[in-house]
Nucleic acid binder design. Structure first.
Lengths: 340, 340
DNA sequence: TACACTTATGCATACGTATGCATAAGTTTG
DNA sequence: CAAACTTATGCATACGTATGCATAAGTGTA
C-alpha cells in the first residue's frame, strides 16, 4: 500500500497523509489523529526509499567494524562497544548498518560504496586503521563521521573519542612500581610494537615504573588473539617459572590467554605473577580469577561520540576535535595489595 | 553528483549511464566501457534510494538478533553465528542491517517497521522467540524470511534451518551412559524447563542415558548467563563435593561458568566431574581445560539458510520446510575415555 | 456586508533512477 | 536501391514521498 492509496481509501489527499504521519503543524489535530488511526489500522508505513529520496536522510547509521578478526568473538571489547553503540543509536530511532569489509575483491571499498550511494546518514568507526583513501573521502565529503576507542594509526582523524594510550600504561606501571617486590620482573605482553597503540602503552608502562625507580624488564610479542597470548606465555615458560613477575598485558582478551597459560604452567596468580589487563570487558569480572584491569570508559566515549554524530547529521558543524578519556585502574583478583 | 549530471558531463544520456552501470546488453561495449571508466574516474556511485524505489530491491538484508541479552558478548554462539551470516551475505554483495529491538517503547515493532518501510529485502532470524504478530506479518506478506539455529517457540515457522534439540541430549546421554562410573550422578544444568529447547534436551539426555540403563539424577536451573551458571553450581556445592558427577550443560557459555565454579570449589575436571556442553563456540577449544561439547553444525545451517533466503529474494518459491541438522559429540579435556 | 487575515487542504512537482517505447543508424536481403 | 531487420541511443515516464504554492474555508474587524 502507498500513501496515495491510503489517502484515497480514507478520503483525504496524499499530502494530508504525509503531513499527518510526519507530524506537520500545517494540518488540524482532528485530521491528524484520524489519519494516524486509519494508518495504524491499515498497518501502513511510509516507504523508506521514497522518503529518503526526498528528504536526503535515511535514518540509518553505518558502524565501521575492524576487519582483522576471524570472528566477532575474537576480541570481545569490539563486540561490547559495538553493542553499546548500536543500543545508543537505536534508542535515538536510527537503524544500524554493519559495515564490515571481509576483504572480498571489489574495485570500490564497502565504505566508499555505502557512503556515495547514500545508504547511511553517517558513520561511526571502531576501526583502528583507516586507509588514506577512506580518510580523504570522509574529509572531502564532509560526511558525518566519528571515530571511537582506538585512534586510527598514521593519520589525524577528526572527531575522535577514545583512549589516551600512554595513560593506560602509566596506570599499570605506577601500580607495579609501588606494589610489586623489587626483585620481580616487569613484563609487557602485547601486540607488535609497530602498532602506535602498543608502543604508547609500553612508553606509559615504562614511565609509571620509572616514577618508582623501576623499569620494563621484558617485552613479549603476540598476535591479537587469546590463543596467541597463551602460546607466547607457554613458549616463555622459563621466565614465569623461574621468578616472580608483574605482567601488564595489552588487553583483557590477551590476559585471559595468559592466565590460561599460567594455570597450565602451575604459576599461582597473583602470588607468583600479578596481572593487569586493559579494557575491562564485561567478562573480566566474571572469570576466575577476576581480572584486574585498566578500565577504558567506553560508555562515556560511546554516548558522547554518538551524540556528536547525530548532531552532525542534524547539520550542526563541529570543529574537528580529539577527545581523550582518562582510564581507571580496577583491582580485582589478579593483583595483590588491593588497597593501594 | 547524479547520473544525469555525469551523463551530461561525458556526453551521453542518463539512460545510457544507467544501462552501462547496470550492465545492460542494450548498449555497445565501447560505450559501456567508456561510461564505466568515466564513472570510476569521477567516483560516481548510483543513488541507492532512487534505485531501490524503482527496482523494489534494496540490496540489504536484516538480521534479527535475540533481545534477551544484556550484551552481544553474553552468549558467544549468537555472536559467532551472526558473524557467519554476515560474512555469507556480504560475500554475496548484500549489506546487512542489524535488527535488534532493545525494547524501547514504540507502537510498532522494529521488525514490522523495517519490513513495511521496505528497508530490507528479507530477514534472517537468530531469534528463538517470535511474537504471534510478527509471525503473522511474515507469513501474510510472503516476505523472504529464514530462521536459523534455534526453533522459534510455540509456533511453526516456515524455512527453519536449525538444530534437532532432542538429538543434542541423546549425544551427551549416550556418552555418559557408556563412559561414566555407575555411581556417578547424571546432572543437567540448564535454563528453565519452560523453554522448549531445554525440555527437549533433557528428554534426549534421559533417552541417551536410558539406553545404557541410567537416568537423569538432578536438574539444576540457571539463567542464560555464565555468571548464573557459576552461581548455581556454587549454590549446589554439596552435590559436586560429595560425589562424582557427569554434567551435561545447556550450552558452552554456561559450561564455562560451571567450570569456573568447579575450579573454585576445587573439584577436578574431568577426574571428579565430567562436563559436556553444547554449541562448540570457537572459545571452547581455546580455554583451559578445553571443553567437550556437542557441536552444532552452524556453518552448514548458515550457508544453506542464506542461500535459500537469497533465492527467495530472487523470486524463487519454496515450500515451507524445516531442516534439522545432526550434531556431533566433540571430546576434549572435560571428559574421560576419549576414544569411545 | 465587505475586507483582511488565518488556518487547513489539495494540486503539482521534484528527488534520482530504471525502463518501455520511439527513433536513428547500420546491416542484410531480394 | 528499397525494404525489412537489427542494434544502439535518447526521450519520457513512473517508482512513493515531501513540500511550495494556490485556494478554500473559517475568523475577526470595521
Amino acid at each position: 500500500m502507498t500513501s496515495k492509496e491510503l489517502a484515497k481509501k480514507i478520503g483525504v489527499s496524499q499530502s494530508t497523509v504525509s503531513r499527518a504521519l510526519n507530524d506537520s503543524p500545517l494540518i488540524s489535530d482532528d485530521i491528524k489523529n484520524y489519519v494516524r488511526e486509519e494508518a495504524a489500522k491499515a498497518g501502513f508505513v511510509l516507504n523508506s526509499q521514497a522518503r529518503s529520496l526526498k528528504i536526503h536522510k535515511t535514518g540509518t547509521i553505518g558502524i565501521l567494524f575492524p576487519v582483522f578478526f576471524e570472528s566477532l568473538s575474537k576480541n570481545l571489547m569490539f563486540t561490547y562497544i559495538y553493542d553499546l553503540v548500536q543500543r545508543e543509536l537505536i534508542k535515538n530511532n536510527f537503524d544500524v548498518m554493519m559495515v564490515y569489509d571481509y576483504g572480498q575483491p571489489s574495485e570500490i571499498g564497502v565504505l566508499e560504496r555505502i557512503l556515495k550511494s547514500h545508504k547511511v546518514d553517517g558513520f561511526i568507526s571502531l576501526r583502528p586503521t583507516l586507509e588514506e583513501r577512506e580518510l580523504t573521502l570522509i574529509c572531502n565529503n564532509k560526511y558525518p563521521f566519528v571515530s571511537l576507542y582506538l585512534a586510527p594509526e598514521h593519520n589525524e582523524i577528526p572527531n575522535f573519542f577514545g583512549v589516551d594510550e600512554k595513560d593506560l600504561g602509566i596506570c599499570a606501571g605506577r601500580f607495579f612500581g609501588k606494589n610489586s617486590e623489587p626483585t620481580a620482573s616487569n613484563v609487557f605482553l602485547s601486540i607488535t610494537l609497530r602498532s602506535d597503540s602498543s608502543r604508547k602503552r609500553l612508553e606509559g608502562f615504562h614511565k609509571g615504573l620509572e616514577e618508582n625507580g623501576k623499569h620494563v624488564d621484558s617485552f613479549l610479542e603476540c598476535d591479537f588473539t587469546m590463543e596467541s597470548a597463551y602460546n607466547t606465555v607457554i613458549a616463555k615458560k622459563d621466565l614465569f617459572l623461574s621468578k616472580r613477575n608483574s605482567l601488564f598485558v595489552y588487553n583483557d582478551m590477551l590476559s585471559l590467554g595468559a592466565i590460561q597459560a599460567l594455570k597450565t604452567l602451575g604459576v599461582a596468580i597473583p602470588e607468583e605473577t600479578q596481572i593487569i589487563g586493559v579494557d575491562d570487558i564485561p567478562m573480566a569480572s566474571w572469570v576466575y580469577p577476576k581480572l584486574s584491569t585498566v578500565r577504558i570508559p567506553v560508555k562515556e566515549m560511546v554516548s558522547e561520540g554518538c551524540l556528536t554524530l547525530m548532531e552532525m547529521i542534524d547539520g550542526k558543524k563541529f570543529p574537528p576535535t580529539v577527545n581523550l578519556y582518562d582510564s581507571i585502574l580496577v583491582l580485582r583478583d589478579t593483583t595483590r595489595n588491593q588497597n593501594c
